[in-house]
């Protein structure tokens, strides 16, 4: 019975997008970033600072979470799949230029948004948030170990740390907002799998 046989091996409707390495790197990085953002708000927004107090303890938690922030990515490097995804995020092809130009023009037509495994926006976001996190780490360390650098550096580092924190907050809100707008992208990161139909619609050049 050919029909039966076909029913037993249906055409794959799901494709694998992420393995456990990528899932856990994202999860732990997100959790650490969340701790950084929440403790930063406690230190920074007067009303919240007034509510929470305990400045030294909050600072300590913020410092530890910040210091740990790059650890999941570094640990993920042992995974071949994770390294491959970093390669996908790093390399830009001609189609990424098309995507970015369309994004600047707010052109939402699918034909104008060609993307492989990651679209150009995701690539730029990944590279920027990685660089910004490292700047936060560097300026944070200057503010933390005050005796290592002249005090003038601390004031300058505080200035960059404060303004970049605000920028990261806005960009992060955009990142979360876009994830909220695409349930299948989120379930892809949760389960590791996405439907073939979604993959073809959102990432037409991706060959899983």
């Amino acid at each position: 019975m050919t029909l039966r046989a076909e029913a037993h091996t249906p055409p794959a409707t799901e494709v694998r997008r992420f393995g456990p390495a990528q899932k856990w790197v994202h999860r732990t990085t997100a959790a650490l970033m969340g701790v950084c953002v929440v403790t930063a708000a406690f230190l920074y927004v007067p009303e919240l600072a007034e509510l929470v107090g305990r400045r030294e303890l909050v600072v300590r938690i913020h410092e530890c979470a910040g210091l740990a922030l790059p650890v999941p990515v570094l640990a993920g490097l042992v995974s071949r799949a994770f390294r491959a995804d970093l390669g996908h995020l790093n390399r830009f092809g001609p189609h990424d230029k098309v995507w970015l130009r369309a994004a600047l023009r707010r052109d939402k037509r699918r034909s104008q948004r060609p993307a492989a495994k990651f679209n150009a926006g995701q690539k730029i976001y990944a590279a920027w948030i990685a660089g910004a996190s490292l700047v936060m780490l560097g300026t944070g360390l200057i503010m933390w170990f005050t005796h290592l650098t002249p005090i003038m550096w601390r004031t300058s580092a505080t200035f960059v740390h404060d303004w970049l924190a605000l920028t990261i907050g806005i960009v992060l809100a955009g990142h979360i907002g876009m994830a909220l707008g695409d349930p299948e992208a989120r379930s892809g990161l949760r389960t590791g799998k996405v439907s073939r139909e979604w993959a073809q619609r959102e990432h037409p050049l991706w060959r899983p």
């Binding site: 390399r91 300026t139 580092a157 970049l164």
Partner: peptide, 17 residues
């Protein structure tokens, strides 16, 4: 490009300090 964006961000941060 990803590497350039990352290094560029770090450079801007240092310039900011």
């Amino acid at each position: 490009v990803g590497r350039r964006v990352l290094l560029g961000t770090i450079g801007l941060g240092a310039l900011g300090v």
